[in-house]
Design a binder for these strands. Structure first.
Lengths: 192, 192
DNA sequence: ATGTTTTCTTAAGATAGCTTAAGATAATTG
DNA sequence: CAATTATCTTAAGCTATCTTAAGAAAACAT
């Protein structure tokens, strides 16, 4: 059933009573998206936190001159949103798009808040989620500041081998902060 | 008294009973550090989460060839640690050093865990703390990927005007991911 | 299937940011 | 306060990464 993945995800960190579980599930909305569908457009208010039930999403920023920067990938079993703008219910800094056909479960800010007050275990659950997200970003900042592009690419492949198979090199390049041409050159040297 | 800052910090997000508050305070250790003292050495196990009661700390990574990357600054009223290594109780990826004479309140992983189980409100408190930290890092990644050094410097000055006064340009440069020479050049153009 | 669009590769020329080095300021130490 | 050490600035030459462009390969659409 549609909820088995998200329940398994919850149970990694917290356990719930039958009622609590049902209340949580009642707040979720289910959404199917096709490849390339945009679930959040940069500039529009970010209303939901998304759980990726299946498929793969990508958050990216588009600046002047259409240079895209990929902020994050979210594969099956990950959570994704523009966290800043979701929390403030303000205009999104990034767009979120389906890399491939995906199924999502989404939660509004309002419903998340009532979840916190009704079922305190969710404070713990999201504390751990935020903690992991913070650690990931902190390590990413460290790598971006201290490692050359080639090593960052190697690390990325080690960390997310599945993602490498599913996304274009253009997208990987924009995640690493380099151009697709330069990524191509890096790959060419590794092939020798 | 030594605890007024940290209590004010807590009360921004949660309220506690007298007993809970006392229990929390009983877990804290107080530490005074002089300018340049290192409270956490890269490679050594990261045992504490630090609250900056007064002063200013800096977390930095030292790679090969002594290039330093500043991962974060933590001024008065901020929390800082090598979060990944604190949570895993593993070897720190970064060092944490006092930029100026500072007073700290620190909490061990063990005590934080017992705090979570004894006083659930702390799940909420740290959920919010982690959330804010995650958002800050995500925005930083976005800026690093999409903005030129000059704009990043301007943004940094706007966001942390106090820090700019207290740290060297070398440290700001290593936070922005550029050399001190290049930062100096950027500043020169703004002076015209 | 065939044509159309996007992606990937390659390569040449351009540039942001790096390295080195040396002098000028400022901060620290004895 | 003189001496030492660290920081900041300036400038020249250098390198990693970018830009542009054009062909090859793959993906997508009709």
């Amino acid at each position: 059933m549609v909820y088995s993945n998200i329940l398994k995800n919850l149970h990694k960190h917290i356990s719930l009573t039958q009622e609590e579980e049902e209340y949580f599930l009642s707040l979720l909305k289910y959404q199917e998206v096709s490849k390339k569908d945009v679930v959040l457009h940069q500039g529009e208010v970010c209303k939901h936190l998304y759980f990726v039930n299946s498929g793969l999403l990508r958050a990216f920023f588009t600046g002047q001159e259409t240079k895209e920067a990929t902020i994050m990938f979210a594969m099956e079993d990950w959570w994704i949103t523009d966290m800043h703008c979701f929390l403030q219910q303000s205009a999104a800094m990034v767009s979120i798009q389906a890399v491939e056909a995906s199924t999502l479960l989404k939660l509004s800010k309002h419903d998340l808040d009532s979840l916190y007050s009704t079922v305190p275990a969710f404070e713990r659950f999201f504390r751990i989620l935020m903690q992991n997200a913070y650690v990931r970003e902190q390590v990413r900042v460290l790598e971006n500041l201290s490692l050359p592009a080639e090593v960052r690419y190697t690390n990325f492949m080690k960390k997310y081998p599945q993602i490498v198979q599913q996304v274009t090199q253009k997208q990987i390049a924009s995640y690493l902060g380099i151009t697709p041409e330069f990524l191509s050159a890096i790959r060419a040297t590794k092939r020798l």
